[in-house]
Amino acid sequence: MKRVKHLIFWLVVIGIILLLFSTHVIAEDEYRQQREALVDIIKADVMLTRDYLNQQALDEKVFDALRKVPRHEFVRDAERPYAYENRPLPIGYGQTISQPYIVAVMTDLLKLKKTDRVLEIGTGSGYQAAILAELAASVYSIEIVEQLGKQAAENLKRAGYGAVNTRLGDGYYGWETEAPFDAIVVTAVASHIPPPLIKQLRPGGRMVIPVGAQFMTQYLVLVTKGVDGKVTTRQILPVSFVPLTGKH
């Protein structure tokens, strides 16, 4: 009798473990499918905007990164059900995790190579840093809001991006000891582009800045530093909209 009870006990325990494991696998599988669907939506949006982006499609490596990085690990529990919708989400402290489409376009604009060193100003949730980590050799990210910075570091570690170098502090002077960078993403823009950041951009490097309020990116600014050190910008509207219909 005792043996039967013992057997039943272990069967129940194993059953529960299997159940938990399978729900985890099912959930992960569901998230993977959602990511795939999200990539399709973004691809469709890019098709509509290709004139503005001056290219037919984004680099497939960017989509691979989007397929891989678990966005749900970078949002609060309340927002998890919306993690794979193509929209920005609040992450607390008046900050947001950008719309995946904008993240994709911004990342693509950087034209990253596997050997690149990337600096990010404004870690936020850590999602953009994780995407960058998929495409570059090393990622350095600075966040000024203490709680956000700590949370982002945890998110990155949990999602398997512990190699991203994070730091709390003022991003205005960049990350002097690790400069120069091949690419810089400024997600928390001040009233102007900090001159020290332009200095830390390697000749031939690229910097991307989203302009606009939280939840509403107006346009993207791509700053390019030529090999001669000459700096130019390109203002990129993330949607296909020509203000004029006729010809004059």
Binding site: Y52, Q235, P243, L244, T245, H248
Partner: peptide, 28 residues
């Protein structure tokens, strides 16, 4: 500071030209 098209230059020349009203009407 490159824009997709030189929008403001186009606007200024059109508005200073003879067809300014048509430009205003056509603008979205």
């Amino acid at each position: 500071n490159i824009q997709h098209q030189p929008y403001l230059y186009q606007a200024a020349t059109a508005l200073l030209g003879d067809n300014s009203q048509a430009f205003i009407d056509d603008y979205k």
